[in-house]
Write a protein that binds this DNA or RNA. Structure first.
Lengths: 206, 206
DNA sequence: ATTTTTACCATACAAATGTATGGTATTTAG
DNA sequence: CTAAATACCATACATTTGTATGGTAAAAAT
């Protein structure tokens, strides 16, 4: 079907896929800049090759008009910043602990990030070990939303409830007691709101 | 914080959000074309207003350089084409039966669509009623992948296994017998491969 | 050995895109 | 009532972006 790609072509294709996942298809100039090319014609020729080999479709005279056609390439490695315990707190890691293959459909909103869930206290909310939660920081949670928070240098995923002078973090699983944080307690920091759960099907194949 | 938007501004913002979900931020010309404006300056002024009110950020001299800032507006209504029975087959609907609020992170690959899951035969794969599966058509499934197929005008979600002269569709749940389709049986049509499961957290709030 | 493909370059051009300025009419706010 | 914001228009311009053509050199294919 589709022919083999050269190393350069593959790199350019990967770059386009990666950029697309973060939001925007790059322009020829942006691709050229990334690879240090001094003009766009070089990029254009590689794109022509990619199109001829069936990996992309170019929309003539349309800015950022590259369409990706290779379904197998629709997965992008994305860093997972840490594991997050739905049950007992676990230490959060400063750097990426893992990389998952996230489909490009799951584009990350600005500043949002991924955490892999470990533990079972959210099983009643149908979140399981291995699922990836998409966390949106810089958003004020509403009562009842599932949030990620750092409590004494450990991360937790709980339902958020703001009361008068304290914040309560509830587990779905009744085995776990609600965590109560008094207002102004310095060991507590809200990380963000869980806006979605994604589970790739690719992992379970084979 | 952010000021109120006028109807026109809201419509333009919605249009940008919707377009972004399908892949690309629109250009001024594309926005103008959609609303019937005869020039781009009209659009530009609305964009300036949106930026002034804090809803977007414009990157000067960058094509399609609009960044969306309003996290609350990160949800796009998307049509759900039908319900899909993980257990016994259910009739598939010709038109959208429902609309869900999908976050724009869940951008749809070209031609892919959404189906809402109903039934429990996939509970062992942790897919539940109310979850939305993202279906990618035009892709040949590999053995073991979860597929959506139409069998005698009803839709099913099963694991796909291709054998010598037949196709087998397995449920995760052992209560359901595998469905065996002889090759060339005309009542069978593969719809697509389930590439992911998405569950919005927004629904469970309140 | 020769041709084709690949991988770059430079320059020029056209189309798309964003920008700037000024105009008219209507609606909203003070 | 008056000023400001809104909602369009037209025209002109600058920049970005994609396109076209031609060139050099090396690697791969025939």
């Amino acid at each position: 079907m589709s022919k083999e790609l050269t190393i350069t072509q593959q790199k350019i294709l990967d770059f386009i896929i990666e950029k697309r996942a973060t939001g925007k298809i790059p322009t020829l100039a942006e691709i050229a800049g990334h690879f240090g090319y001094r003009n766009r014609s070089t990029v254009r020729q590689h794109l022509q090759a990619l199109e001829r080999k069936g990996y992309i479709k170019r929309n003539p005279n349309v800015s950022r008009g590259i369409e990706l056609l290779t379904e197998d390439k629709f997965f992008v490695p994305r860093p997972v910043l840490g594991e997050v315990a739905a049950g007992n707190p676990l230490t959060i890691y400063p750097d990426a602990i893992d990389t998952i293959e996230l489909p490009t459909i799951a584009r990350m909103p600005k500043d949002s990030f991924l955490l892999k869930v470990k533990g079972d206290s959210l099983k009643d909310a149908y979140i399981f070990t291995g699922d990836v939660v998409i966390v949106n920081p810089n958003t004020q949670p509403r009562n009842g939303q599932i949030v990620v928070a750092v409590l004494d240098d450990a991360a937790v995923v709980k339902r958020f409830y703001k009361k008068r002078n304290r914040i309560e973090l509830h587990s779905e699983n009744p085995e776990y007691e609600p965590i109560v944080i008094e207002k102004n307690y310095s060991g507590f920091k809200l990380v963000g709101v869980v806006i979605g759960v994604y589970r790739s099907m690719e992992r379970k194949v084979g």
